[in-house]
């Protein structure tokens, strides 16, 4: 009966993942490997960026909006924020579908999201990346790693650490069923600062991590060390988020850019 419970939990979490996230690894890989009828529009310089803004991301940039005359770095930073806000919204809905999450103390739910969403976001971002770039605008565009690196500092420092993480993470060859459980494990984490009902969350975490471990053994029988490798990735993600939060604070201090109120809430007093 315990095994049956585990299978049910794995299935519920995987279904919630497929339902709530607009992009997933299977979709992203189909596009990145050229198996779609229309390949993504490649953004590799200022000219192609402008073209993409006029067509793919017109809504985000607001062609007639306040950002029209701002420099490319600021416009790209703004686009990153829009995507982040959307993903945080999706992650919130996903978390609510994880069995047990909604019955947690509301303040604890907030704490789990505050500390978990960026780790989850960067883990999932890897699905949309290859060594040369990153899918954007729901997979209709592809922005090159070189172009992102060529932006002026500090904006050029934003994505390179995520690419470096993604290349190592993608080498583990997880599929969406693995990622769904991994993202759930990131969110249901008992050692986030300020949690009230730690015991309740630790019980949830334990069952999710156990399901993840069994699922990996069944889904990747040739890689017996995949589970410990993934546990290490949890620590790497925490470090990646800490560095990202510092960079965003620096940008906020030195650049004339606004930060979305939802993201401000998440970053405020984070680490």
């Amino acid at each position: 009966p315990q095994l049956a419970d585990q299978k049910t939990l794995a299935k519920q979490i995987y279904e919630a993942y497929l339902k709530n996230f607009n992009m997933n690894k299977a979709k992203a890989r189909t596009i990145l490997t050229g198996k779609t009828s229309t390949p993504p529009f490649v953004i590799h310089d200022m000219e192609t960026l402008q073209l993409a803004e006029q067509t793919l991301v017109a809504k985000m940039v607001g062609s007639a909006g306040a950002l029209k005359d701002r420099e490319a770095e600021v416009r790209i930073f703004h686009c990153c924020q829009c995507t982040s806000v959307e993903t945080v919204t999706e992650l919130t809905e996903f978390a609510k579908s994880v069995p047990g999450f909604s019955s947690l103390d509301l303040n604890d739910q907030v704490t789990l999201l505050k500390y978990g969403v960026y780790e989850a976001l960067f883990a999932m971002l890897a699905s949309s990346m290859n060594k040369d770039g990153l899918l954007v605008a729901y997979g209709s565009g592809f922005i090159t790693r070189e172009f992102l690196k060529s932006l002026r500092r500090p904006f050029s420092d934003m994505m390179e650490p995520k690419f470096q993480f993604a290349m190592k993470f993608n080498a583990l060859e997880l599929d969406d069923s693995d990622l769904a459980l991994f993202v759930a494990a990131i969110i249901c984490c008992g050692d986030r600062p300020g949690l009230v009902n730690v015991a309740h969350i630790e019980r949830m975490q334990e069952s999710i991590v156990q399901v993840l471990q069994h699922h990996l053994l069944a889904n990747h029988p040739d890689d017996t060390f995949l589970f410990p490798k993934l546990l290490q990735k949890l620590a790497d993600l925490r470090q990646l988020v800490t560095e990202h939060a510092q960079l965003v604070q620096e940008i906020k201090k030195t650049e004339d850019t606004s930060l979305h109120p939802l993201l401000q809430e998440i970053y405020r007093d984070m680490y």
């Binding site: 703004h78 924020q81 829009c82 806000v85 945080v88 919204t89 919130t92 809905e93 609510k96 509301l106 303040n107 739910q109 907030v110 999201l113 505050k114 606004s258 979305h260 109120p261 939802l262 809430e265 998440i266 405020r268 007093d269």
Partner: peptide, 20 residues
């Protein structure tokens, strides 16, 4: 609670538009 107003909103509403 005030410090995380939008996160609270997102958790309590099924979907809420989060515009810049």
């Amino acid at each position: 609670k005030e410090k995380h107003k939008i996160l609270h909103q997102l958790l309590q509403n099924s979907t809420s538009p989060v515009d810049l």
